[in-house]
Design a binder for these strands. Structure first.
Length: 155
DNA sequence: GCCAACGTTGGC
DNA sequence: GCCAACGTTGGC
């Protein structure tokens, strides 16, 4: 099965690409997702070996900062059980996990952030989830064509 | 800081 | 099951 491509959003003031790089082994779990559509992707579709664009939202500049790699497929997001975490949810239990996360490892930071503004001007990316008006999904699929177009921008 | 778009909640 | 109200996301 070929690897797939994804895009994860984060507000860098909360967790940035540099923060991921600074973690032990440059690896961390992508916790705190509390949206069902994103949860389904984390639980069912995002697998070890997949590659992920790390997107900085609500930031200057706003755009794709680099690439990380999935090193562990979906498993229950135990931070939901920690009342002191940012996103506790009493409906999440050991028996019936509700929320999921994956582990990602820093791979590469782009020399320059690829700005959302620029992505929106590329015709091949017109149908990308990220460039859709009102798109809020924080974990989203990227097609291999979209991935190639964006990678080519960094060369 | 504003506000449009979206997802979720809860009354009925 | 509908939908208004509400809270959040995230670009601008």
């Amino acid at each position: 099965m070929a690897n797939k491509y994804w895009l994860f959003k984060s507000e860098p003031s909360c967790f940035s690409m540099d923060d991921l790089k600074a973690m032990p082994k440059s690896t961390d779990h992508w916790d705190g997702v509390r949206n069902y559509q994103a949860r389904n992707l984390l639980r069912d579709d995002i697998k070890k070996g997949d590659e992920v664009f790390f997107y900085h939202s609500n930031a200057k500049p706003m755009g794709i900062a680099g690439i990380c790699t999935v090193v562990k497929s979906g498993y229950p997001d135990h931070t939901a059980q920690d009342p002191n975490s940012d996103h506790p949810d009493p409906k999440h239990t050991d028996d019936k996990p509700l929320w999921y996360m994956v582990d990602v490892k820093f791979k590469k930071k782009f020399k320059d952030i690829i700005a959302l503004k620029d992505l929106k001007e590329i015709s091949g990316l017109n149908n990308m989830v990220l460039t859709q008006r009102g798109s809020r999904l924080s974990v989203q699929p990227v097609t291999s064509d979209e991935w190639k177009i964006i990678i080519a921008l960094t060369k």
